[in-house]
């Protein structure tokens, strides 16, 4: 690397310079990540410690005093869980679960999609028919199977979401990669004696990944909501360690009775976080797109 080349940091900064919304999104993500990471230090209460909770503190509106004398800024749920603390901890779980699931799941999907497009033949058949199989298999049954076999737990939810995430990406990437494979540069690379793996990673991947990047933020928010839905259906994370989704689902029951804070605060945080992820992702995508970059 020569000295004139911009550093990676400079490259990233170039992508964001002059785009205040994207910068705000970046700041937002950083904020949420920090809150999630330092939740145990920041949160007024440990919502997972059952001895700290008291149902006598249940359903208090925002700004109420708990039995311990602390103020509950955002109110409490039926179990006496401080919503502010629960949201901080829930953010942690939701982010962790969805990021791990989407990254592992999408990575797997992209790899299998490229493999299918390159190898064709029986490899493609097996991969694509597995996609069909997965598409037909309901997530709720899958989650129930994991629950029945291995019990409740955050890790089981991640497995279920990974299995939920890979197939659509594989299909998407394969469809684009098939088109790419017909293009001259692949033939040229082959003639130049470049190995299959290198062609896949160096040429096919960058040229086929754009549609996956488009759906990635959706995939993350999708994973967060999928986790929430599993919780809503009673097969999500353990109820004593609620994620944002589970908090929303719990608050759902109180929506009609005017106890809005239980559902609304986690909901707002969820929407805000996904919004931040999306504006940043949009910027990166636009920047990465050579046609658009040329216009700037």
């Amino acid at each position: 690397m020569s000295k004139q080349d911009p550093t990676r940091l400079e490259k990233i900064w170039k992508a964001f310079r002059g785009h205040p919304i994207a910068i705000a999104g970046l700041i937002g993500i950083t904020f949420f990540l920090l809150v999630a990471f330092f939740a145990p230090l920041l949160a007024p209460q440990n919502p997972y410690d059952q001895t700290q909770l008291d149902i006598l503190d249940g359903l208090l509106p925002p700004m109420s005093q708990l039995g311990t004398g602390q103020t509950s800024w955002l109110g409490t749920d039926a179990l006496g869980r401080d919503i502010l603390s629960a949201v901080m901890y829930g953010l942690r779980i939701s982010l962790f679960v969805s990021f791990v699931a989407v990254i592992v799941g999408s990575g797997l999907g992209v790899f299998l999609g490229l493999l299918a497009a390159m190898k064709r033949g029986w490899v493609e058949t097996v991969i694509m028919r597995s996609v069909d199989l997965k598409m037909s298999f309901p997530g709720i049954l899958l989650a129930l199977m994991l629950l029945a076999m291995f019990g409740t737990g955050v890790d089981k939810v991640i497995y279920a979401l990974i299995i939920g995430a890979w197939a659509s990406k594989a299909r998407l990437v394969r469809s684009v990669a098939l088109s790419e494979m017909k293009k001259e540069y692949i033939d040229a690379a082959r003639l130049a004696g470049i190995g299959n793996l290198r062609i896949m990673l160096r040429f096919l991947l960058p040229n086929s990944i754009s549609p996956v990047l488009v759906v990635l933020p959706m995939a993350i928010s999708g994973a967060i909501t999928a986790e929430a839905t599993l919780s809503f259906l009673g097969v999500g994370v353990p109820i004593t360690e609620p994620s944002l989704g589970l908090l929303i689902a719990n608050g759902n029951d109180y929506l009609l009775s005017g106890k809005w804070w239980i559902s609304i605060f986690p909901g707002l945080v969820l929407v805000a976080m996904v919004l931040c992820i999306n504006v940043v992702a949009d910027r990166i995508r636009d920047h990465a797109n050579p046609y658009l970059r040329g216009k700037e």
Binding site: Q50, L147, G151, L233, V235, P238, I239
Partner: peptide
């Protein structure tokens, strides 16, 4: 030390 496990009725 309680580990609470809630499950759908069928399970």
């Amino acid at each position: 030390k309680i580990s609470l496990k809630t499950q759908p009725w069928s399970v």
